[in-house]
Design a protein around this nucleic acid. Structure first.
Length: 214
DNA sequence: ACCCAGGTGGCCC
DNA sequence: GGGCCACATGGG
Protein backbone atom coordinates (compact mmCIF):
# COMPACT_ATOMS: atom_id res chain seq x y z
CA UNK A 1 0.00 0.00 0.00
CA UNK A 2 1.59 3.21 -1.22
CA UNK A 3 0.35 6.59 -0.04
CA UNK A 4 3.10 8.98 -1.10
CA UNK A 5 1.72 11.92 -3.12
CA UNK A 6 4.05 11.16 -6.01
CA UNK A 7 2.94 7.51 -6.23
CA UNK A 8 -0.67 8.60 -6.04
CA UNK A 9 -0.05 11.18 -8.75
CA UNK A 10 1.49 8.56 -11.05
CA UNK A 11 -1.37 6.17 -10.43
CA UNK A 12 -3.95 8.83 -11.25
CA UNK A 13 -2.03 9.91 -14.35
CA UNK A 14 -2.06 6.35 -15.58
CA UNK A 15 -5.76 6.01 -14.86
CA UNK A 16 -7.09 9.33 -16.16
CA UNK A 17 -4.35 10.59 -18.47
CA UNK A 18 -3.23 14.22 -18.62
CA UNK A 19 -5.91 16.82 -17.94
CA UNK A 20 -4.10 19.70 -19.66
CA UNK A 21 -5.38 22.45 -17.38
CA UNK A 22 -6.25 25.33 -17.28
CA UNK A 23 -8.97 25.35 -19.96
CA UNK A 24 -8.66 29.01 -20.97
CA UNK A 25 -7.22 30.96 -23.86
CA UNK A 26 -5.63 33.89 -22.06
CA UNK A 27 -4.07 34.63 -18.69
CA UNK A 28 -6.91 36.93 -17.82
CA UNK A 29 -9.49 34.31 -18.73
CA UNK A 30 -7.82 32.04 -16.16
CA UNK A 31 -8.36 34.70 -13.50
CA UNK A 32 -12.00 35.18 -14.43
CA UNK A 33 -12.56 31.42 -14.40
CA UNK A 34 -10.82 31.06 -11.04
CA UNK A 35 -13.19 33.57 -9.47
CA UNK A 36 -16.32 32.28 -11.18
CA UNK A 37 -15.65 28.66 -10.23
CA UNK A 38 -15.53 29.37 -6.51
CA UNK A 39 -17.90 26.79 -5.05
CA UNK A 40 -19.44 26.38 -8.49
CA UNK A 41 -19.70 23.69 -11.15
CA UNK A 42 -17.38 24.37 -14.08
CA UNK A 43 -20.22 23.85 -16.58
CA UNK A 44 -21.97 26.91 -15.17
CA UNK A 45 -18.73 28.87 -15.37
CA UNK A 46 -18.22 27.97 -19.03
CA UNK A 47 -21.61 29.43 -19.86
CA UNK A 48 -20.67 32.70 -18.15
CA UNK A 49 -17.32 32.87 -19.93
CA UNK A 50 -19.05 32.27 -23.25
CA UNK A 51 -21.51 35.06 -22.53
CA UNK A 52 -18.68 37.41 -21.53
CA UNK A 53 -16.88 36.60 -24.78
CA UNK A 54 -19.97 37.09 -26.93
CA UNK A 55 -20.56 40.45 -25.26
CA UNK A 56 -16.86 41.28 -25.73
CA UNK A 57 -16.53 41.98 -22.03
CA UNK A 58 -13.87 39.43 -21.16
CA UNK A 59 -11.10 41.96 -20.70
CA UNK A 60 -9.55 43.91 -17.87
CA UNK A 61 -10.69 47.26 -19.20
CA UNK A 62 -14.27 46.07 -19.81
CA UNK A 63 -14.72 44.45 -16.43
CA UNK A 64 -13.09 47.44 -14.73
CA UNK A 65 -15.44 49.98 -16.30
CA UNK A 66 -18.66 48.22 -17.33
CA UNK A 67 -21.94 48.67 -15.47
CA UNK A 68 -22.06 46.10 -12.68
CA UNK A 69 -25.66 45.10 -13.33
CA UNK A 70 -24.68 44.13 -16.86
CA UNK A 71 -21.79 41.94 -15.63
CA UNK A 72 -24.14 40.38 -13.10
CA UNK A 73 -26.42 39.42 -15.94
CA UNK A 74 -23.60 37.99 -18.05
CA UNK A 75 -22.23 35.78 -15.27
CA UNK A 76 -25.61 34.92 -13.78
CA UNK A 77 -25.27 31.19 -14.43
CA UNK A 78 -22.22 30.95 -12.14
CA UNK A 79 -24.23 31.73 -9.01
CA UNK A 80 -23.18 34.19 -6.26
CA UNK A 81 -23.24 36.60 -9.17
CA UNK A 82 -23.33 39.82 -7.14
CA UNK A 83 -20.29 38.88 -5.05
CA UNK A 84 -18.47 37.53 -8.06
CA UNK A 85 -19.14 40.68 -10.06
CA UNK A 86 -17.64 42.69 -7.20
CA UNK A 87 -14.61 40.42 -7.21
CA UNK A 88 -14.12 40.59 -10.99
CA UNK A 89 -14.43 44.36 -10.99
CA UNK A 90 -12.12 44.73 -8.01
CA UNK A 91 -9.25 42.72 -9.46
CA UNK A 92 -9.72 44.25 -12.92
CA UNK A 93 -9.53 47.77 -11.52
CA UNK A 94 -6.55 46.79 -9.41
CA UNK A 95 -4.59 45.55 -12.44
CA UNK A 96 -5.73 48.52 -14.48
CA UNK A 97 -4.73 51.11 -11.92
CA UNK A 98 -1.60 49.55 -10.48
CA UNK A 99 -0.21 47.80 -13.58
CA UNK A 100 -1.63 49.82 -16.47
CA UNK A 101 -3.96 46.91 -17.20
CA UNK A 102 -0.93 44.80 -18.08
CA UNK A 103 -0.95 41.37 -16.45
CA UNK A 104 2.60 40.66 -17.57
CA UNK A 105 3.76 43.65 -15.58
CA UNK A 106 2.00 42.30 -12.51
CA UNK A 107 3.43 38.81 -13.03
CA UNK A 108 6.99 40.15 -13.26
CA UNK A 109 6.88 40.53 -9.51
CA UNK A 110 7.97 37.74 -7.21
CA UNK A 111 5.64 34.90 -6.34
CA UNK A 112 5.45 36.11 -2.75
CA UNK A 113 4.55 39.64 -3.80
CA UNK A 114 1.92 38.46 -6.26
CA UNK A 115 0.37 36.19 -3.66
CA UNK A 116 0.31 38.92 -1.05
CA UNK A 117 -1.34 41.36 -3.43
CA UNK A 118 -3.92 38.84 -4.61
CA UNK A 119 -4.81 37.89 -1.04
CA UNK A 120 -5.25 41.56 -0.16
CA UNK A 121 -8.17 41.75 -2.60
CA UNK A 122 -11.56 41.00 -1.07
CA UNK A 123 -12.89 37.77 -2.56
CA UNK A 124 -9.51 36.29 -3.43
CA UNK A 125 -8.64 33.60 -0.88
CA UNK A 126 -5.75 31.14 -0.83
CA UNK A 127 -7.11 28.71 -3.42
CA UNK A 128 -8.07 31.36 -5.94
CA UNK A 129 -4.77 33.17 -5.42
CA UNK A 130 -2.73 30.01 -5.83
CA UNK A 131 -4.71 28.92 -8.90
CA UNK A 132 -4.04 32.31 -10.49
CA UNK A 133 -0.34 32.09 -9.61
CA UNK A 134 0.06 28.55 -10.98
CA UNK A 135 -2.13 28.68 -14.09
CA UNK A 136 -2.04 32.35 -15.05
CA UNK A 137 1.28 33.68 -13.73
CA UNK A 138 2.77 30.19 -14.15
CA UNK A 139 4.85 30.19 -11.02
CA UNK A 140 5.52 27.30 -8.66
CA UNK A 141 2.73 26.92 -6.10
CA UNK A 142 0.16 24.21 -5.53
CA UNK A 143 -3.50 25.16 -4.97
CA UNK A 144 -5.30 23.08 -2.36
CA UNK A 145 -9.00 22.56 -2.87
CA UNK A 146 -11.75 20.70 -1.04
CA UNK A 147 -11.07 17.58 -3.13
CA UNK A 148 -7.39 17.51 -2.21
CA UNK A 149 -8.21 17.70 1.49
CA UNK A 150 -10.92 15.04 1.13
CA UNK A 151 -8.80 12.66 -0.89
CA UNK A 152 -5.81 12.81 1.45
CA UNK A 153 -8.08 12.68 4.46
CA UNK A 154 -9.36 9.35 3.15
CA UNK A 155 -5.90 8.05 2.45
CA UNK A 156 -3.95 9.33 5.43
CA UNK A 157 -6.42 10.51 8.06
CA UNK A 158 -5.91 14.00 9.51
CA UNK A 159 -4.21 16.30 7.00
CA UNK A 160 -4.37 19.66 8.78
CA UNK A 161 -5.40 22.98 7.25
CA UNK A 162 -4.72 24.59 3.87
CA UNK A 163 -1.18 25.70 4.64
CA UNK A 164 -0.14 22.42 6.20
CA UNK A 165 -1.53 20.38 3.32
CA UNK A 166 0.15 22.70 0.83
CA UNK A 167 3.52 22.53 2.58
CA UNK A 168 3.34 18.75 2.77
CA UNK A 169 2.46 18.23 -0.90
CA UNK A 170 4.87 20.83 -2.23
CA UNK A 171 7.57 19.20 -0.20
CA UNK A 172 6.79 15.73 -1.56
CA UNK A 173 6.16 16.48 -5.23
CA UNK A 174 8.82 17.33 -7.83
CA UNK A 175 9.16 21.10 -7.92
CA UNK A 176 7.96 21.52 -11.48
CA UNK A 177 5.16 23.78 -12.67
CA UNK A 178 3.95 21.11 -15.09
CA UNK A 179 3.65 18.56 -12.29
CA UNK A 180 1.79 20.98 -10.04
CA UNK A 181 -0.61 21.89 -12.84
CA UNK A 182 -1.40 18.28 -13.58
CA UNK A 183 -1.52 17.22 -9.95
CA UNK A 184 -4.17 19.76 -8.98
CA UNK A 185 -6.18 19.04 -12.12
CA UNK A 186 -6.11 15.30 -11.70
CA UNK A 187 -7.15 15.44 -8.04
CA UNK A 188 -10.16 17.50 -9.13
CA UNK A 189 -10.85 14.91 -11.82
CA UNK A 190 -10.70 12.16 -9.22
CA UNK A 191 -13.02 14.11 -6.93
CA UNK A 192 -15.53 14.70 -9.71
CA UNK A 193 -15.61 11.09 -10.80
CA UNK A 194 -15.25 9.09 -7.63
CA UNK A 195 -14.96 10.94 -4.36
CA UNK A 196 -18.52 12.22 -4.12
CA UNK A 197 -20.44 11.90 -0.92
CA UNK A 198 -21.22 8.28 -1.76
CA UNK A 199 -17.78 6.89 -2.52
CA UNK A 200 -17.63 4.39 -5.35
CA UNK A 201 -14.46 2.95 -3.96
CA UNK A 202 -14.71 -0.30 -5.85
CA UNK A 203 -14.02 1.58 -9.08
CA UNK A 204 -11.65 4.19 -7.71
CA UNK A 205 -7.99 3.90 -8.75
CA UNK A 206 -7.05 4.64 -5.15
CA UNK A 207 -9.28 1.94 -3.72
CA UNK A 208 -6.46 0.03 -2.07
CA UNK A 209 -5.28 3.09 -0.14
CA UNK A 210 -8.67 4.64 0.59
CA UNK A 211 -9.94 4.29 4.15
CA UNK A 212 -13.50 4.66 2.79
CA UNK A 213 -15.80 7.34 4.21
CA UNK A 214 -14.52 10.64 5.52
C1' DA B 1 -37.08 17.45 -3.02
C1' DC B 2 -32.98 17.10 -1.91
C1' DC B 3 -27.49 17.32 -2.66
C1' DC B 4 -23.53 19.17 -4.60
C1' DA B 5 -20.16 22.14 -7.25
C1' DG B 6 -12.39 23.47 -8.92
C1' DG B 7 -14.41 29.24 -1.91
C1' DT B 8 -14.58 33.45 0.70
C1' DG B 9 -15.56 36.71 4.36
C1' DG B 10 -17.84 37.82 8.58
C1' DC B 11 -18.90 36.63 12.91
C1' DC B 12 -18.41 33.93 17.11
C1' DC B 13 -15.86 31.60 20.75
C1' DG C 1 -6.92 28.43 15.45
C1' DG C 2 -11.68 26.23 14.16
C1' DG C 3 -17.14 26.15 13.51
C1' DC C 4 -21.05 28.15 11.39
C1' DC C 5 -23.49 30.92 8.06
C1' DA C 6 -24.72 33.66 3.71
C1' DC C 7 -23.87 33.94 -0.91
C1' DA C 8 -27.15 31.55 -5.76
C1' DT C 9 -27.32 28.91 -10.02
C1' DG C 10 -28.03 24.52 -12.57
C1' DG C 11 -27.48 19.49 -13.02
C1' DG C 12 -28.09 14.84 -11.08
Amino acid sequence: METSPLKIYRKLLKHFGKQKWWPAKTKFEVIVGAILTQRTNWINVEKSIERLKEAKKLSIISLATEEKSYIEDLIHSSGFYKQKTERLVLISRYILEKYEGDLHLFFKKSLKEIRKELLSLKGIGPETADSVILYSAEKLILPIDAYTLRVFMRIRGNVGNYNQMQRYLMDELPKEIGVYKEFHAIIVKLGKVYCKKKPRCHLCPLESTCKKGD
